[in-house]
Design a protein around this nucleic acid. Structure first.
Lengths: 242, 242
DNA sequence: ACATTATTGTCTCTTTTTGTGACAATAAAT
DNA sequence: ATTTATTGTCACAAAAAGAGACAATAATGT
């Protein structure tokens, strides 16, 4: 979660109480699938980037706003995948620690200290053109490979798990137009991405035939200046169809 | 949405404000896929059965509680599929009408008159052993075939649409153990169910081979006393595996 | 300039899965 | 006992996916 107000916690009634969102922001560095994690000041606690929803704001817009603040990116691919609503979703001590570490104050009984519901989204962004920006309450935001995550606060590990599961299930249906790759990429790049997401190796020829058969790619002129071998075609995703 | 308190709207601060759930309750009568809809007193408005979440209650439990109240059924198959959070999700006039039609009062500025977020679930229940129970605010609750729905309030038509889409996508993965059929059923019954859900006809032999190949059914002794023809086997779903 | 090397694009053959019809088995009705 | 409608299963055809083969080719080394 992220607080944009400076030292002025009362302003929190600008938000819908007991409601938050969390975002699992996926990026791909060419080899590994990674996600963005915050580390809070003086707490050693890692968490998903999240935030709250303003009273006059669409839920989806709140998430886009948060993503824009943290990544500077607009038009991010975004997918809601689950809402977590157990009563155990409260972390008063943690909240207090974070708030105190940031020299802020909170009144007793504030809903931030109580349980809250969180709507979880995953986002796919281009790893290369992002310099993640920490917010006031956290001292770092960094990429972590999905198989080398630190322990996360509250139920955030479960959230990541479900995000990854959903991403895998949606892969064939919804990867069109994703931002996980640069605008132009080779078939091998795409295959590496699939392998990183699915966590398994794929057969080159079968993969190529399947992807080309999906009719979602545009083939461009060969421009690759890679190694001592035949240059591959470059591809881009077709403009997304309605 | 449903109010369980009688004439005592202040008790509403027992609930998490600005948060609701809606449930798309599917049943199958052997031919058509149907859902349960409420009609509110003196309003002509149809709506999905829904409710609110108590401050100390798991989100999932709130939904189970509501389903139990309306159907008398426990252990219903339940799946969360989306959270609807647009600011347009407010219906102050409708709310007022409903509340007045029920001779209740509401203070100005109450969150019920403002926008609220709704977490949507779908449920699969056995059409035959349910006598739906209306709540205090509605004068009827009835089954409506999914292709003959009346117009629904707010965004409830979108919610139904998405529920149906999700159900179709999950069909092969998650129908195991569903309650949409009686405990024992024929292969033809199951095929009719699939056809009603998918809205398309399926080929008998292919369907049979596919389902048997999924290894989710137990075959029982033939007991069917139907018509002038070879009696089919009866099946039931295997006890659901973890 | 030419052979070498690594990787690509495509083709073919094999295997698996799915579509489609055929047919014997059989419970009730005649 | 014969007819009728529907079932369970098999067999063949068509389509999709798995797996390897091979020529094409961009950089490198000689």
């Amino acid at each position: 979660m992220a607080f944009k107000e400076n030292k002025k916690l009362p302003l929190f009634d600008e938000y819908i109480p007991h409601l938050a969102y969390d975002s699992v922001i996926f990026g791909f560095n060419g080899r590994q699938l990674k996600i963005l994690l915050l580390e809070y000041h003086n707490t050693g606690l890692f968490a998903l980037p999240g935030g709250f929803v303003k009273r006059n704001e669409h839920l989806d817009d709140a998430v886009k706003r948060g993503l824009k603040e943290r990544t500077g990116l607009d038009h991010i691919y975004l997918e809601q995948f689950h809402t977590f609503g157990n009563t155990t979703r409260a972390a008063p001590e943690v909240m207090r620690t974070i708030i105190e570490a940031n020299e802020m104050e909170i009144e007793e009984g504030h809903w931030l200290l109580d349980r809250f519901i969180s709507v979880a989204y995953y986002a796919l962004i281009n790893y290369d053109d992002v310099k993640p920006i920490p917010d006031e309450l956290s001292d770092s935001i960094n990429w972590y490979a999905i198989d080398e995550l630190p322990s996360l606060m509250m139920d955030h590990e479960k959230i990541v798990e479900k995000a990854l599961k959903t991403l895998r299930e949606n892969l064939d249906k919804k990867l069109t137009g994703t931002n996980l790759l640069p605008p132009k990429f080779t078939m091998k790049d795409l295959q590496h991405l699939y392998e990183a997401i699915l966590g398994e190796e794929l057969r080159r020829t079968t993969f190529q035939r399947k992807i080309l058969g999906m009719d979602i790619l545009v083939r461009h002129e060969k421009l690759y200046a890679g190694g001592a071998h035949k240059a591959p075609y470059l591809y881009s995703f077709k403009a997304s169809q309605t």
